[in-house]
């Protein structure tokens, strides 16, 4: 007679299922354990402490081998008062970075979607073009940006050159462009927006590099059979773009918008981030924490709005 455990009675199935579940749980915890530890020690606790520091007066302990200590035990809004009412720069920088974000994000997302569509077609040298499009991540990020800013020699060598992106020569190109737009009687705001976008083309290619990769991945994951079916039904390329490509990558538009917003808010080019970083390095940890907390809340609010608006338009295939 077969033993009871080998028979597939409902009880045994349940037990087996339960054991699989507990096994799954166990391995889930094992695989994610590095991040569980990290999330508690290096994310959650510092997060809570940052909020606490921002409401107190905090200084670095003069003894070596000690951390931050609360100088004054009382709870107060002094640090927030300091950054919003006393500091002349912080509010301006936040408004400026919000403005930059509002201008950059739509341009970057549209540009990188267009670029990815072009890179997704077949042409000679496609591999080369794809590698070049990602190059800005390497050649203009981090410390390189601080080295290339206000580079005197680069301005000199570019001056009088037909192509160079210095103030002199780009003025000629964008000047003609501006004249053309003016004659079309477009609203001045729109003209300024377009001129700004043309002038910042290299900044836009830098910001769009990751988005191009995201969109390229999305476009390549669309099954060719959908395209075939629609061409057989007599759809034109224009219709295929609007009715198939765009809805299929719309979740990625959301992803790309979120990434670009976060990138423009938290990259170390951002003036607010620089200010916070300098404050923390300079040793005023409490004010730095207050800045970081309020700035993070602003970022989360903006992302919440973006998410709420965009998730209504996004189309999910399944």
């Amino acid at each position: 007679m077969a033993t009871n455990t080998n028979q597939l009675t409902p009880k045994n199935i349940r037990r087996r299922k339960r054991s699989l579940e507990s096994k799954q749980k166990k391995y889930g915890y094992i695989f994610t354990s590095p991040f569980i530890v990290g999330a508690i020690i290096f994310i959650l606790i510092p997060l809570v402490y940052s909020v606490i520091y921002s409401f107190h007066k905090v200084e670095l302990s003069p003894e070596v081998g000690k951390g931050l200590i609360c100088v004054d035990g009382s709870f107060g809004l002094d640090n927030y008062n300091e950054i919003f009412n006393v500091d002349p720069n912080f509010r301006k920088q936040i408004l400026a970075s919000l403005g930059d974000m509002a201008i950059n994000v739509p341009v970057v997302v549209i540009f990188s979607f267009f670029m990815a569509s072009v890179l997704n077609t077949k042409f000679m040298g496609r591999g080369f073009a794809r590698s070049v499009m990602f190059l800005p991540v390497i050649i203009s990020s981090g410390v390189i940006i601080s080295l290339t800013q206000n580079d005197l020699a680069a301005q000199l060598i570019g001056a009088g050159d037909r192509f160079a992106s210095t103030a002199d020569s780009s003025f000629e190109i964008t000047g003609a462009f501006e004249m053309m737009l003016m004659q079309m009687d477009l609203p001045v705001r729109l003209i300024e927006f377009l001129i700004g976008a043309v002038g910042r083309i290299s900044e836009i290619t830098t910001m769009g590099a990751v988005s191009i990769v995201i969109f390229l991945a999305g476009l390549q994951s669309i099954s060719p059979s959908i395209y075939e079916a629609s061409y057989i039904e007599g759809a034109t390329k224009w219709e295929v773009f609007w009715k198939i490509s765009l809805p299929m990558v719309s979740p990625l538009i959301l992803l790309s918008v979120v990434y670009t917003v976060v990138d423009s808010f938290t990259s170390n080019v951002n003036a607010v981030i620089r200010n916070i970083h300098q404050t923390i390095i300079g040793g005023t940890y409490d004010v730095g924490a207050a800045m970081a907390v309020s700035y993070s809340l602003i970022i989360l609010a903006i992302l919440g709005i973006v998410f709420a608006v965009l998730s209504k338009v996004v189309f999910y295939q399944d």
Partner: peptide, 26 residues
């Protein structure tokens, strides 16, 4: 955990620096 991954992606790194610095200094 996944929510925390996304949260860490969205927040500026400097938010977590003050206490991390304090921890390693101690």
């Amino acid at each position: 955990l996944f929510f925390l991954v996304i949260l860490a992606l969205l927040l500026p790194p400097d938010l977590l620096f003050t206490h991390r610095y304090s921890m390693f200094r101690s």
